[in-house]
Design a protein around this nucleic acid. Structure first.
Length: 576
DNA sequence: ATCCGGGTCT
DNA sequence: AGACCCGGAT
């Protein structure tokens, strides 16, 4: 039976944005030769937290694979069916069950582009519909009412929607503009306006489902298409395309981060001297940055502990993050330890009351009144050394600190330099610290502060690439779709060019990241990823098992080797 | 007992 | 690439 947008078929759940939490997840199931999509709602897993469950099942299906086309490969072709109560025909039947050409929205939408996408032939050849011949009709002529249909199969609920419906559904389900773009492009929809016209995804991502039903679709003309293409494509090429799902990934990390309390949260340099007057606070930030380099956060700072509310959030988050949750041991938390036994993931929160290590160097400096350039300039270097002692390289840092204090006094009137260039001139201040100080001390975002965590994680996620190794893929990919969409081989060839190589230095990472990451993320990305790196995506043996975005991560579960061999490590890091 | 993370400078 | 230096993990 047909379901129009808000219809509800007897006995079968259909997609309802307001109740999406009732579905364990959403899965792209199919795109068929007539440009229809199916979304499968798996009703067997019911989680109260829609984003997480969606993320998980999403990952397990569409986004598991590293290359864009590979992801798309996972989308299977489904017939358009109007029966909600009937099981879907088997794949083989599907091939023969051509979508009825006469029916409204769905039928006849086939176009060369779509077939290209029909990609899949590579996956299953029988899916190829002989009846589909390349046609050149413009898309808009074939699209009828925005409808969707639902049906069930093996307990799953499928939704078949037309291309305009998917335009609404996709951002809602995936909350990811980039993915939508890629998907639609890969399906041969070169109509950029459709892509550009997507509703504000953030509205969906953060729970404002209301606007969903009010979204209007805009008719598209071929004229629009060509004009959009001409002005849309060039910038994308030069700008570098954001990685698919980066927003989703970021959100997933944020969810994990909000619950896991990483050292950086309580000990980052931005916490230094938070109650001080601006000028002194800035110096505190600078000093804190200097000391913290090459030193664990909990050494530069004092101990930390979780508040009650944080504990609660940890508990809640772990519950949802651990998809295959088995059991929990609770209470005081400093560390989350994950053990995997078989398919089940057992999440254990281990108990550690506090760090018994030394009090924080910054705190000691502050207590001794040595957090101003003046005092440091006059203080004995040995005193400074002793106060900052446990931090790494303390002799050099004490010396640098004194030099910096002097410079601040003589050249900057006791304040710290206010430009990136001048900061870099200070001894012991490199690019990482300079950006951090600019961001935190001056609220002046000149660049992303890329430390080892950001560097590592961005590479693991495939978010950055060595210059010249990724742009190459975007261009041919788009070109093949927008110019001549019938050559499947061209598409595949284009994909093959997509060989991303890891950046080799943090500076490279910074430049690559800045190419696409929206500027409002430049500052938060650092504490976010640092904390993530401290608690989940650790350098050694990352805890992919508790990572809610592991299915979105091309590197998930790939680095499992034991830490003793370095030859192995090299292999690992080579490329994926 | 050994190795590793951590940023800068040489 | 290696030195610098510690705490922590293994």
């Amino acid at each position: 039976m047909d379901l129009c947008n808000q219809g509800e078929p007897d006995g079968h759940p259909i997609y309802n944005p307001e109740k999406r939490g009732e579905f364990g997840g959403v899965r792209m199931v199919g795109i068929d030769g007539v440009a229809q999509y199916c979304i499968n709602f798996n009703t067997t897993n019911s989680f109260p937290d829609p984003p997480n469950s969606m993320t998980l099942s999403l990952l397990r299906t569409c986004l598991l694979l590293p290359s864009p086309l590979a992801r798309i490969n996972s989308i299977k072709i489904m017939p358009i069916t109007r029966l909600s109560s009937k099981a879907l025909p088997s794949k083989r039947e599907i091939t023969s069950a051509e979508p009825n050409p006469g029916s409204e929205s769905s039928s006849g939408v086939s176009m060369p582009e779509v077939r290209v996408f029909v990609r899949k032939k590579r996956a299953k050849r029988e899916v190829q519909l002989s009846s589909i011949e390349p046609k050149t009709e413009p898309l808009e002529q074939k699209v009828g009412p925005r409808t969707w249909a639902a049906y069930t199969l093996d307990g799953d609920v499928y939704l078949a929607v037309d291309v305009f419906c998917i335009r609404k559904l996709l951002p809602f389900c995936f909350q990811n503009h980039a993915f939508c773009q890629k998907l639609l492009l890969a399906c041969g929809f070169v109509n950029i306006e459709v892509l550009c016209g997507l509703p504000d995804i953030e509205d969906f991502a953060y729970g404002k489902a209301k606007s969903f039903s009010r979204q209007t679709t805009t008719a598209v003309t071929s004229k629009d298409v060509s004009s959009m293409e001409s002005k849309f494509l060039p910038p994308i090429r030069s700008k570098d395309e954001p990685p698919a799902n980066w927003e989703k990934v970021l959100e997933g990390i944020q969810n994990m981060r909000s619950s896991e309390g990483a050292p950086v949260d309580t000990m980052g340099c931005e916490k230094a001297g938070i109650s001080l007057p601006p000028k002194e606070r800035r110096f505190a930030v600078l000093a804190s940055s200097l000391l913290s380099s090459q030193t664990k956060d909990n050494v530069t700072h004092g101990k930390f502990k979780y508040s009650q509310s944080e504990l609660f959030r940890i508990f809640v988050a772990i519950f949802f993050v651990s998809f295959d949750y088995k059991g929990l041991q609770t209470v005081l938390v400093l560390q989350v330890v994950v053990k995997e036994s078989g398919a089940l993931r057992v999440v254990v929160i281990s108990i550690k009351s506090s760090f018994t290590t030394s009090a924080g160097a910054i705190q000691r400096l502050l207590q001794n009144g040595l957090l101003t350039p003046d005092a440091i300039d006059q203080a004995d270097e040995a005193t400074i050394k002793s106060l900052i002692y446990p931090v790494g390289f303390y002799p050099k840092k004490a010396s640098n600190l004194k030099k910096i204090a002097k410079i601040c006094l003589t050249k900057y009137d006791g304040d710290i330099p206010s430009t990136l260039e001048e900061l870099l001139l200070l001894p012991g201040i490199g690019p990482k610290m300079a950006h951090l100080v600019m961001n935190v001390g001056w609220d002046n975002v000149q660049g992303i502060c890329v430390d080892t965590h950001v560097h590592r994680i961005c590479n693991r996620l495939g978010w950055v690439s060595r210059p010249g190794t990724k742009q190459d893929h975007v261009v041919p990919l788009r070109a093949s779709f927008s110019l001549n969409l019938r050559s499947l081989k061209a598409v595949d060839d284009a994909i093959l060019i997509c060989v991303r190589q890891n950046t080799s230095t943090p500076e490279q990472t910074r430049e690559s990241l800045q190419l696409w990451l929206p500027k409002e993320q430049w500052v938060p990305i650092n504490p976010l990823l640092v904390g993530f790196g401290q608690t989940v995506c650790t350098p050694l043996r990352p805890r992919c098992g508790i990572c809610s975005i592991s299915d979105l991560c091309p590197s998930a579960f790939k680095e499992t080797s034991s830490p003793s061999s370095k030859g192995k490590k090299d292999e690992k890091n080579k490329k994926r």
